Amino acid sequence: MRLLWDRMQDRDWSGVGALLAPDAIVEWPASGERIVGRENYVRVNAEYPEGWSIHVLRVVASGSEVVSEVEVPHGAMGVHRAVSFWTVENGVITGGREYWTELGADRAPAWRAPYTERI
């Protein structure tokens, strides 16, 4: 999965597409979106406003399931994090579910303060 993120960082959109099945489906539950098909997934990423970079924090794989966590700082839009759950079959991504958030977007409620530390 690191190769996917490396290709995105390099803006190698044909290389990103080569890692996806033609009928891959990727869901973004936080925004209520489903991206159907390799071309749509490539385009939605290629069209994202420039100014971002990708830092892979971790990748964990077991069989056909791969989980990745990345940080995506953007000069104008802040720092985002994504945790992605991928299904890989025959060497290509057939599906995924990505949870994107902007750091600081989810404020911790005051009632939890006695039990937590800020990170």
Rank of each mutant, 00 (worst) to 15 (best):
M1A: 10
R2H: 13
R2G: 09
D6F: 03
D6Q: 14
M8S: 05
Q9R: 15
R11L: 07
D12W: 11
D12I: 04
S14A: 15
S14Q: 14
A21D: 15
V26N: 01
E27D: 09
E27Q: 09
A30S: 09
S31T: 15
S31P: 02
E33K: 13
G37R: 03
E39V: 04
E39W: 02
N40I: 05
N40W: 10
Y41N: 07
R43D: 02
R43I: 03
A46V: 14
E47V: 09
Y48K: 12
E50V: 13
S53K: 12
I54P: 03
L57Q: 14
L57V: 05
V59W: 02
S64Y: 07
E65D: 11
V66P: 04
S68R: 00
P73A: 07
P73V: 00
H74K: 01
H74D: 00
G75A: 14
G75D: 14
M77R: 15
M77S: 14
M77Y: 14
G78H: 07
G78Y: 01
V79S: 10
V79G: 05
V83P: 01
S84L: 04
S84P: 01
S84V: 06
F85C: 02
F85T: 03
F85S: 06
E89H: 15
N90T: 13
N90L: 08
G91I: 01
I93S: 01
T94S: 15
T94A: 13
G95N: 11
G96K: 01
G96Y: 00
W100C: 03
T101A: 07
E102M: 10
A108S: 13
P109T: 07
P109H: 00
R112D: 01
A113H: 14
P114N: 04
Y115C: 03
